[in-house]
Design a protein around this nucleic acid. Structure first.
Lengths: 290, 290
DNA sequence: CATGATGTCTGACTTTAGTCAGATATCATG
DNA sequence: CATGATATCTGACTAAAGTCAGACATCATG
């Protein structure tokens, strides 16, 4: 009753019945589940028919019929794609948007109801984040994005908050050599955000300099996503980007209060070098030749 | 992207697709899912046809047909219930047990595969326990059981380990007034274990004494089950049992290092009294008249 | 022991999901 | 502009799940 496998299986059972209940709550709107799923995919912004088919794993014949039934119902309208007349794009009509809103309200109410039942909300949410990240790990996408985008700013905020918790003297960005956004945009550098579904769960910046090297900055992985080797994936992606940009030498600084970071660098070809800047926070400095 | 409801919904999406994959892994054995589910329910010890139907939420007609198809296949045999000739009981044949074992192996392999993919196993398992307990909270059952049963011993072990972590001087059972098992058996007392599915997640003992009162001992709730008001349920069940046993006065001791326990007692009609024993660990003493 | 309730079974359906082989239109390419 | 690839659609199926009314045997009860 206590071994890890039974615990996973207990979780599976609990979640299977919860998911069943969730699915059947969608049946209350007089539409089969398949059609409801297509409607919701469109509502969530997937307009390309092929993309929806792919996302939901449907046969093209089935997809075509589901789309037709939604059109007959008056909740969806389709048109041909502007760039490619073979493809079709679907969008919701006014009634379709109303139906979608009803499904959204249902989902939100279900989620709120679940949360309302439990004390220790934060613990529960953290557990959910962890599991969701674990389950969708192979679907984590690394996207280059602007260092001032919403996702990037979210990651950086979390990163600073975590440094504040882990450095005994706290962390104040304004005292640190905070990299300029323009140094983390191509062609000088880049900024990569790891997204799991719609949640940013990690980031890293490549900051161009005028000293013949580029610096790795702001490597962060969300607590809920640790153990998935995401740090390594982010570093690999950054090195690839650096090579693309013709950068031959990378440097970074870090702090011994973040042992997992030092560990990562040491096992991926970085070598320790003497201090190369006067930032007050770091106490460890590394270099890697590409 | 960050609010609690979105986090729950992200979890739901992640888990929905995982459950789908799990279900379809059961299709590899040439049997539709419905039939496989019935076979597995029987394998897990549910023999009464009505009980299976209820557990799986099936229509009686459908259930009857599924059972018939399993019989035709030679994996199940049915007979009439010994006490009631209207009811049927189903059991696996030899080949049925072999098929069941194959499904079990599949489930175990799936669970092991999931665990093998992840570092931070313990964190992941703890998150799964927490969520499973939250989802099945209304299905937690409180069972009176022998204080030396496997489940009881598991709970007590966890309880002692937790005291060891929370008391700054640690905890050594042999120094404490460890209650005798025979004082926690009817008619002198009782011992109640809270089970979620097959996992013990809490316990409490009622220890009979010869001094005109009984004592509450070993109240424990698994970390994964906190926030579900399980402590209160356990205490209520114990008080009910005490009333049944004709006990009019209850006492207990606890420690101020366990503030949630003190809080629970104070809000449920217990009043603080002077020390009534010489156990070195407790520093708070309560009494409640039934 | 008559009566209504209960548990199972059967027949006759419907709905949903899914498959597969073309048909048709359009696109990218040389 | 011929050719093969791609995206969607249609027709013709099958399988699985589920529903419903009634049949039948058995049980609990007064």
């Amino acid at each position: 009753m206590l071994n890890p496998v039974s615990r996973v299986r207990r979780f599976n059972r609990a979640v299977t019945s919860a998911v069943g209940a969730l699915d059947s709550s969608f049946l209350g709107r007089g539409r089969p589940l398949g059609a409801a799923r297509v409607l919701n995919a469109i509502g969530h912004g997937r307009s390309d028919v092929a993309e929806i088919r792919d996302y939901l794993g449907l046969d093209s014949g089935l997809m075509s019929r589901l789309l037709r039934s939604l059109e007959d119902e008056g909740v969806v309208e389709t048109s041909t794609h502007a760039d490619d007349a073979r493809r079709r794009v679907a969008k919701l009509t006014r009634t379709g948007r109303r139906e979608f809103a009803a499904y959204e309200a249902l989902s939100n109410a279900q989620a709120e109801g679940f949360l309302a039942q439990h004390a220790q909300r934060e613990a529960l949410l953290a557990a959910m984040d962890l599991i969701a990240s674990a389950l969708t790990r192979e679907r984590v996408s690394l996207n280059e994005s602007d260092p001032q985008s919403e996702q990037a700013r979210y990651c950086l905020g979390e990163y600073y908050a975590e440094l504040g918790r882990r450095f005994k003297q706290g962390f104040d960005v304004s005292l640190s050599r905070d990299p300029d956004a323009k140094d983390m945009r191509r062609p000088r550098g880049t900024f990569i955000v790891a997204m799991s579904d719609t949640l940013p769960i990690g980031c890293v910046g490549l900051k161009g300099t005028d000293h013949g090297y580029a610096e790795i900055k702001r490597l962060w992985v969300a607590p809920a996503a640790r153990g998935l080797r995401l740090g390594r994936r982010l570093m690999d992606a950054t090195e690839d980007a650096a090579r693309e940009l013709g950068i031959a030498l990378l440097r970074l600084d870090t702090n011994s209060a973040l042992p997992e970071a030092g560990q990562l660098y040491r096992t991926t070809g970085w070598r320790e070098i003497p201090r190369f800047n006067d930032d007050p926070y770091p106490d460890l400095f590394f270099e890697k030749r590409l």
